[in-house]
C-alpha cells in the first residue's frame, strides 16, 4: 500500500503548484481573455529575484516579499504589453504573443541567472506537516494545496461579491462595452496580471527547492498548469484545482514505476491531448452524422 501512497503523497506538492498555476491561468483567461503561456516564467522571475537577494546575504523574509513584488511587476509589464498593443487581437493571436514572450523571458532569464545550472534555492518551508497512513506529508505540500484552494475560494468570492469583481466579469464578457460605460479596463487588466504574477511567484518559491531550480525548468511548469486549466475547460476554478492536484499525484505515482518514471514529464501532454480530443467529440460526432 505504502509503495503507492508514498509517491502519490509526494506528488501533492507539485499537484498544488500545478493547481495554483492552473487556477491563475483560468483567472487570466476568464478576465482578460488570454491563454497565458508566460505565467510560470513570470513566477520564475520573482523566484530568481529571491535567490539573487538571499545569495547576496539579504534576510529571507524581506527577500520573499521583494521576489513577490518582482513577480507582480513582471506580470504587470506583460499585461501592459498585452493591453497596450494586443487588446483588440483575437484569442489565438494573444496566445501566440504570450508564447513568443515566454521564449523571450526564458532567454533573458537564462542569461541573467547563469544558464541551466541549478541555483541554491532557500527552502522556505522545510520539514513535515503531519503523517498520513504512515507517510510524511510535507509543509510544502500542505502550503501549495492550501494556497491553491485559497486562491480558488478568493477568486470565486472576489468575482461574485465585490464591485471590482463585477467590473471584471463585465470586462471579460465584452471589454469594449465595459469601457464604453466607464469601466477602467486597462487598470483592471493590469490588476489581474499583477495579482496572478504575485500568487504564481509565491507558489514557485515553495516548490522550487524540490525541483531543479533553473529558469527554464520553472518556466516550463506552464505545461502542467495549462493541462490543469484544460481539465477545468478554462472556466471552472474548482475543476482546475482538482485537475492540477490529480496531475501531481499521477506524476508521483508514475515516478514509482521504474518502466515509466523517465517519461512522467510527458503526462501533462497526454492530459492536454486527452482533454482536447474529448472536447472535440461533439464536433466529430456531428461531422460523422
Amino acid at each position: 500500500m505504502n509503495s503507492f501512497l508514498t509517491p502519490a503523497i509526494a506528488g501533492l506538492a507539485a499537484g498544488g503548484t500545478y493547481a495554483l498555476l492552473g487556477v491563475c491561468a483560468v483567472f487570466t483567461y476568464r478576465l482578460v481573455a488570454v491563454v497565458n503561456f508566460t505565467g510560470a516564467a513570470i513566477g520564475s522571475a520573482g523566484t530568481f529575484a529571491l535567490i539573487a537577494l538571499t545569495e547576496s546575504g539579504y534576510p529571507t523574509f524581506p527577500s520573499v516579499i521583494a521576489g513577490i513584488l518582482v513577480g507582480a511587476a513582471v506580470g504587470v509589464l506583460i499585461g501592459f504589453i498585452m493591453t497596450r498593443w494586443f487588446a483588440e487581437a483575437n484569442s489565438s493571436t494573444k496566445a501566440a504573443v504570450t508564447a513568443a514572450l515566454l521564449v523571450g523571458l526564458i532567454a533573458i532569464g537564462l542569461r541573467l541567472t547563469g544558464g541551466q545550472h541549478p541555483r541554491v534555492m532557500p527552502d522556505l518551508f522545510p520539514g513535515s506537516a503531519f503523517r498520513m497512513a504512515g507517510v510524511e506529508v510535507t509543509i510544502a505540500s500542505v502550503l501549495t494545496i492550501g494556497l491553491a484552494v485559497l486562491f480558488t475560494v478568493l477568486s470565486d468570492l472576489f468575482l461574485n461579491r465585490t464591485r471590482i469583481g463585477l467590473h471584471l466579469r463585465a470586462l471579460s464578457d465584452r471589454p469594449l462595452a465595459a469601457e464604453l460605460i466607464g469601466v477602467k479596463v486597462r487598470l483592471l487588466s493590469l490588476l489581474v496580471w499583477g495579482a496572478t504574477g504575485a500568487f504564481t511567484t509565491f507558489a514557485l518559491m515553495i516548490i522550487a527547492p524540490q525541483r531543479s531550480p533553473n529558469f527554464m525548468t520553472l518556466s516550463l511548469l506552464v505545461v502542467p498548469a495549462l493541462a490543469a486549466a484544460l481539465v477545468g475547460l478554462f472556466r471552472s476554478f474548482w475543476l482546475t484545482l482538482a485537475g492540477g492536484i490529480l496531475l501531481g499525484v499521477v506524476e508521483g505515482l508514475a515516478s514509482s514505476v521504474d518502466s515509466i518514471s523517465q517519461y512522467r514529464s510527458a503526462i501533462p501532454f497526454l492530459v492536454i491531448l486527452a482533454v482536447l480530443l474529448w472536447s472535440q467529440r461533439e464536433a466529430r460526432w456531428d461531422e460523422a452524422r
Partner: peptide
C-alpha cells in the same frame, strides 16, 4: 453582458 444578470448589467 450575457453572463451577468439583468441587475448586474446595470450595477456595472
Amino acid at each position: 453582458f450575457g453572463q451577468l444578470t439583468t441587475e448586474e448589467n446595470m450595477k456595472v
